[in-house]
Computed example of a mutant assay.
Amino acid sequence: MPPPAASGRVSIVIPCFNDGAFVGEAVQSALNQTTPAADVIVVDDGSTDPGTLEALERLPGGVAVHRQPNRGLPAARNAGIARTRGDYILPLDSDDRISPDYVELATAVLDERPEVGIVGGGIELFGIQESRRRPTYDGVAGMLFENHLYTCSLTRRADWEAVGGYPEQARFAEDWIYWLRILGLGREVHLLDETVWFYRQREGQMTRSMDSRTASNAVIQAMRDQPELYAAHMAEVTDYLELKMQTLDGFRRRYGRLNDALARIRPLLGRQA
């Protein structure tokens, strides 16, 4: 069991796999908070890159490093959270950064509003692509079939424990399923006006956008994980399925006509040969 919480309220967990070029920046942004975190832990998820191993050895004092065999991102987050002591949890990817006031702003919300279970804010993309974005949230129904929240959001340790943490069996959309688990507890979402997360864009980066097939599989995973939540919104589920059926029927009609045309053309091509 982790020790009792220190003066800080937030634990910052940074999973790292062969990301030594950037993990120092992520850690420094975690340490530069106007309200210090209870603890900062880096989870080395089986890194094999010598540069990463050296970078982890050079991290500032006071930053804990937990090493484990490669188990994937959700398992790394859970392992790190289990070793922290804060009342609130902030996951930070090892190539990203957070603003100096993120912990202070989010802690104030969670302290004052016990009904809130997720706190996020504005996002700035940097690197090979630069832009600013804001997450949106208009209720649980809007989250059932598309994830509108982002990785670097704060949650309560008590809620993480209540829902069993991040879904370690998920191959993708683990954040989305985790948010749905918390929303299933009846929690609310608060989005800060300030830009608090700096999301690095780089070559070779695993995309966080999903094609239609992957998105559909993610919905199936989420429905299997949270059947009661989806059952409570059966009208929205029915509308979603009807829209999917209409789309499928449209493809069938379109490609059916194409197949008919090809069937008529093939004999003519054979005569010309």
Rank of each mutant, 00 (worst) to 15 (best):
T155R: 05
T155P: 04
T155F: 12
D159L: 05
W160N: 10
E161K: 12
G165P: 06
Y166C: 00
Y166F: 15
Y166S: 01
P167C: 10
E168C: 10
E168A: 13
Q169S: 15
A170V: 08
A170T: 02
R171C: 05
R171A: 09
F172S: 06
F172N: 09
A173M: 01
A173C: 10
E174A: 15
E174M: 11
E174T: 04
D175W: 05
D175M: 03
W176K: 07
I177K: 06
I177D: 09
W179N: 11
W179D: 12
L180E: 01
L180Q: 05
R181K: 15
R181I: 00
R181F: 03
L183S: 00
L183M: 00
L183Y: 03
L183Q: 00
G184W: 02
L185Y: 07
L185A: 08
L185D: 08
G186Y: 02
G186Q: 01
R187S: 11
R187A: 15
R187F: 11
E188F: 00
L191Q: 07
L192F: 10
E194L: 03
E194V: 04
V196K: 10
V196T: 11
V196E: 09
F198Y: 14
Y199C: 00
Y199E: 04
R202D: 06
R202H: 15
E203V: 13
E203K: 13
E203F: 07
G204N: 09
G204A: 08
G204R: 04
M206W: 09
T207M: 14
T207W: 13
T207D: 13
R208L: 14
M210T: 09
M210S: 11
M210H: 13
D211N: 15
S212P: 07
S212G: 12
T214N: 01
A215I: 12
A215P: 02
S216Y: 12
N217C: 10
N217K: 13
A218T: 00
A218N: 12
A218R: 04
V219G: 08
V219F: 06
V219D: 03
Q221N: 14
Q221A: 14
Q221H: 12
A222Y: 06
R224Y: 13
R224D: 14
D225F: 08
Q226Y: 06
P227G: 08
E228N: 08
E228C: 01
L229T: 02
L229C: 06
L229N: 03
Y230F: 13
Y230C: 04
A231R: 13
A231E: 10
A231N: 01
H233I: 02
M234E: 10
A235R: 02
A235Q: 04
E236N: 03
T238F: 07
D239Q: 12
D239H: 10
